[in-house]
Design a binder for these strands. Sequence first.
DNA 1: ACGCTTTGTCCGACGAACGAACTAAGACGA
DNA 2: TCGTCTTAGTTCGTTCGTCGGACAAAGCGT
Lengths: 407, 407
Amino acid sequence: MLDVIRAAGTISRVGLINATGFTGATISTVVRKLIDEGLVVETGRAESTGGKRRVLLQLNHSSRYAVGVHLDHAGITYVLTNLGGSVVARISRAGAGTAEPQTVVGRMAAEVKGLIDSVGIDHKRVLGLGLVSPGPLSTSTGMGLTPPAMRKWEDFPLNQALEQATSLPVVLDNDATAAALGEHWSGGIGGTAISAALYMGTGIGAGLIINGITYRGGSGNAGEIGHICVDANGPECWCGARGCVEVLAGPAAVVAAARADAALAGSAGLTGRSRSVSSDFAAVSRAARRGEPSALAILERSARYIAVAARTLANIMDLEVLVLTGPSFAIAGWVYLPVVRDELDRTFFSRAAHNVDVRLSRSAATASAIGGAALVLQSELVPLHEGLRLPDNLADSEPAALPASGA
Amino acid sequence: MLDVIRAAGTISRVGLINATGFTGATISTVVRKLIDEGLVVETGRAESTGGKRRVLLQLNHSSRYAVGVHLDHAGITYVLTNLGGSVVARISRAGAGTAEPQTVVGRMAAEVKGLIDSVGIDHKRVLGLGLVSPGPLSTSTGMGLTPPAMRKWEDFPLNQALEQATSLPVVLDNDATAAALGEHWSGGIGGTAISAALYMGTGIGAGLIINGITYRGGSGNAGEIGHICVDANGPECWCGARGCVEVLAGPAAVVAAARADAALAGSAGLTGRSRSVSSDFAAVSRAARRGEPSALAILERSARYIAVAARTLANIMDLEVLVLTGPSFAIAGWVYLPVVRDELDRTFFSRAAHNVDVRLSRSAATASAIGGAALVLQSELVPLHEGLRLPDNLADSEPAALPASGA
DNA sequence: ACGCTTTGTCCGACGAACGAACTAAGACGA
DNA sequence: TCGTCTTAGTTCGTTCGTCGGACAAAGCGT
């Protein structure tokens, strides 16, 4: 319901009837409740269509807020967004480093509080906190971040601790999924049924949105597009396969290629230290923009592989919208966007039926943090049955059946 | 609900409570209704768990039936299945050829009637007819088969005509999706949330099942796995891209490679006529089984590409089950199965969390026709809100907004 | 035989959605 | 200017699915 209003931007009750299939009676009561809660406001009248003029409705963007926190190697980004997904306040801090989990949680809670207070918003209007971190995470019970070199956090009940420290509901997800949802809420994707976000940070992932809800797959690891094969005889990847996009075209590969080119490495001022892939990637992009052909060539080679992966994703999911987002696309999206767009225009399988709308996120650098906030908006405002059913914890062990003894 | 009973095979009311999350009260009333309708029967008692013994429930397989029709170049296959998805009767006939659509519809209706009568089942117990055909079809309105060389059928309202001629509800879908649903109903996949069927006929496609319902994508063309790229520098495909699996590893590619090997072409008795790809593919498989190394090598090369495509699919969707099905796997599945299974065991990205269960369909040759019947079972017995929401026909054109004039 | 546990049903309550009748507000012709 | 027509939106009473809680049935253990 709210999702339909959000998608339309501005819509009348009659519009909602047509869009949702509900009766006028139902729409009437639901809309009144939303207006009473302050989530929706009437903002004017439409032209007459022969009778009474329609009253137009919009989300009341400043009625609720959500906090998004992106926890990454590089640092922690905090954003506060309104109901429309627009960023109201933002701060960045250094990463967690080697501090104790409990200490870090305390720091985060203090910074979230400061963020909200800095714009003078009543804490009661903040719906919750969306925590986003890269890589596979086990939402199941307890929650632990399992990526390498964060052993301290394993089995640490981060969401519960953070819920207590901030007294806000906490939800969490991975960066790509969050970014996709963020685009869905704030990126003007509108009411598209099937969209995806290609997220490129240090690795490459994709977040999938089906009918307005996130698709997570069997174990929450859907969208692992970084390990799509684009060359069956390509180099080995740490994942065990050959020719993965990430190895051939990820930021690390781009930086490695640039470092191997001595002339380029010098002129672009690459650090050569293996830890600062992201800053070297930015340096390569700057060199390309300055017009250095070797830098541009390296990026375009990467873009062509990414484009092939994008096509694969689009063909499998029958995508309608694809958004490029994440830090790396924030830096070098200008190279990737035309290549991906061209590839899909030429080779998307169902292009006769519809094209894939390829876009560059308008806020690629903070997409994940915004997505964290969107995660909250989604979970608090969109009831579950409007989208996909919860995964049933099917068929508990049934005691052994006896040979049928009764009727 | 019925889907849960089907998935479990045999389950008690208490089991249903745990599996669905509903209350005992609700389960009680729903189950009574199902028993009254004859869809479910009580079939015995379970061991005691300390108190009263549970009454076990099962689908009443012979209470309802469904017809599946697979329309293909090669011919038309008709199956009649029971509620469990088991085939009760089956016939095959020559293809439509060049006859007029109206004539073909009449013939099909007569053959369906004969099929039902041949096993003496009351027509009232037949829920409907699922029509399956290869390639993209426009379910929207009117429905027309658009594949090449069937122009006569374009804009012909096939489902309506068939509904009238058979007085059965008709649903339709493409072969891969239908096959996936067929495996879900009859293949003992159980309650897996995310499964896919790799369908190899003349081309290669995949059908996707998410939480028991089919996923069709933005325009009904999801699962176009034949045009996944496995070699960015590979040969061109008719779809416009390079290195598609279909070109490198599809049956046509296998047959072409075999024909190019003069020794093999002779010993395997290949026809060399470009029209009989499927019979030549079968001949290659027979040769491989006889132990001819060149034939086996060709098939295994194909299998390795298919396996890579399967991994890509599994990584993107985070699959739990993958079934190999369709005529080509019916013939040569014994080569493909171990290769695909091995690839996913070694390189599936989330293998730490769970493996992908790779299987060969037990009825690969008739999978699509069975799937057509499953399509009917699904549409008649599983209410929509249990799965994905209907695509909203969102936001009808709103009359232009005036500058806000009211509050 | 008596309690205790587990399974399954019955009943009243509640909320979501609907159909139909009704009011509100504008267009349009006589 | 006044009725009539059309479209927008509300109110009321009903249906239906689900829940909570009380209760009956069937088995176990001592």
